[in-house]
Design a protein around this nucleic acid. Structure first.
Length: 211
DNA sequence: TAGTACCA
DNA sequence: CATC
């Protein structure tokens, strides 16, 4: 058994099948307002294999010219991101162990060939809040390492309805998606996997703090 | 290094 | 790794 950083929590089958369907409907409504786009690597412009969109006050985007960042508008439509759906706010309030709501929810769609190399979530100003993610659709192999690129990793098969939390010492753990297992879920009619990632981006504003 | 290649 |  490989070492696991404290603050990393795997919550299998957090959402029931019915709840997954309801959550998926909320996600569909977001994507109808904020279409999936192709993120590109900084400097090289190489397209990532996932397609993405966001909801919340801020969304994570990347392109060749400006690189990784959070911004309040969709890079294609120029419109503000739709609000974070109620079921996801409920999830955050239940598992984040953090007294303020998330500002960003990144929605990543993986087709059968998509993957995500090992990386850290470090574009946020606030590392005190955890990163909370939800899997919907096909199972994936999810790899988690330590706070540096070298060192051992642990891999999980994340199934539809599972929740994974990177918090505390594990907030800056390297992680990525090695592969998708096609045909392992019937939730998405066309297959593939949706990952929803909730994050706090900025420190809490004074107006949020009740003393 | 949110990319790739390669390996166990 | 080649690249920034």
């Amino acid at each position: 058994m490989t070492e696991m950083l404290p603050g990393i929590r795997y919550l299998p089958a957090y959402f029931s099948a019915d709840e997954q369907k309801a959550l998926l409907e909320e996600v569909r409504a977001v994507v109808a307002q904020a279409p999936l786009f192709v993120p590109r690597m900084p400097r090289t412009g190489k397209p990532m294999s996932v397609r993405m969109t966001n909801c919340g006050a801020l969304g994570w985007v990347t392109d060749q010219e400006r690189g990784y960042r959070y911004q309040p508008i969709h890079p294609v439509t120029g419109k503000p991101w739709p609000p974070i759906p109620p079921m996801l706010l409920d999830l955050w309030r239940a598992v984040a162990d953090y007294p303020f709501d998330p500002e960003a929810c990144l929605i990543n769609y993986y087709d059968a060939e998509a993957k995500m190399g090992l990386h850290q979530d470090r574009d946020e100003q606030d590392f005190d809040a955890p990163v909370v993610s939800v899997s919907l659709g096909d199972t994936c192999r999810f790899r988690v390492g330590g706070k540096t690129r070298q060192g051992p990793t642990v891999s999980y098969k994340l199934q539809s309805g599972d929740v994974f939390v990177l918090g505390g010492e594990g907030r800056l753990a390297f992680h990525g998606v090695d592969r998708i297992y096609p045909g392992t879920s019937t939730l998405l009619k066309n297959g593939g996997r949706i990952n929803l990632t909730l994050r706090r981006v900025t420190p809490p504003r004074a107006s949020e703090i009740i003393t």
